[in-house]
Amino acid sequence: MSLRALVHYDPRIWQLSIMGSLLCLGVVFRDFSLQPLQILLTFVAGILTQKFFLHTRQLHARGLLSALITCFGLCLLVRSSTLWVHPILASLAISSKFLLRIHNRHVFNPANLGVILGLTLFPETWVATGQWGSDLSTALWLIAGGFWVAGNAGRLDISAYFLLFYTTLFFAIRIGWYGYPLSVMLHQLQNGALLLFAFFMISDPMTIPLHPWARILHAFIVAVFAYVWQYGLYKNQSLIWALFFASLLVPLWNVLFTGPAYQWRSS
């Protein structure tokens, strides 16, 4: 099977390989402060939780790719001084897919919820937003571009709209009105956390609105919320919090704007 056919078969395979390589790059070259055992435990807990729910609910064996993506997401984002936080978060995040459901869809992107739970429940847990150096960010841009071209998730419109709204806000207020130099904007765009969020978290087709117009609205809400959270309230992890709160509105958008349910092609 060619790469294109493979990606066409299920874009999550492409996403998994990208996240996996980013994790390797980060751990090996970037001082990600992540222990191998933390990674291992995350995956063990994540896969076991997925298996547990599939078994108890007598569902067909599926969703393993999504569980792996959640585990990669948590490893890339969450940092902790202890070993047990990562596996607990992986379990909680994946459980949420089965337990927090409205209209037969899960409400939160599991990795997003996992990070929120980590930040709120466990004191020795944090998100290192500055961990991406500019060189790795450049790589991420290239990869994301590749993902864009090859990716057939069919929901990448939301990544583009989100980046468009967020950078427009940033440009209009901080560069246009406040008068910061353009280099500040470029520095922002190089932030790996922003790109990772845009391409691999907000784009999760299972938790975003089904209708294209609602997706634009959703992207707009996330962008405005994130900007206000960071630059109006001076709080951290703005993207993560913005998606968390905006996700609560998605069931409403799905009632107001109906659209066909999303199915991973391989499912």
Binding site: R79, P123, W126, A128
Partner: peptide
Amino acid sequence: PEDLMFQETGD
């Protein structure tokens, strides 16, 4: 290009 922004981590 930007002023230094900090966060207190749980580390």
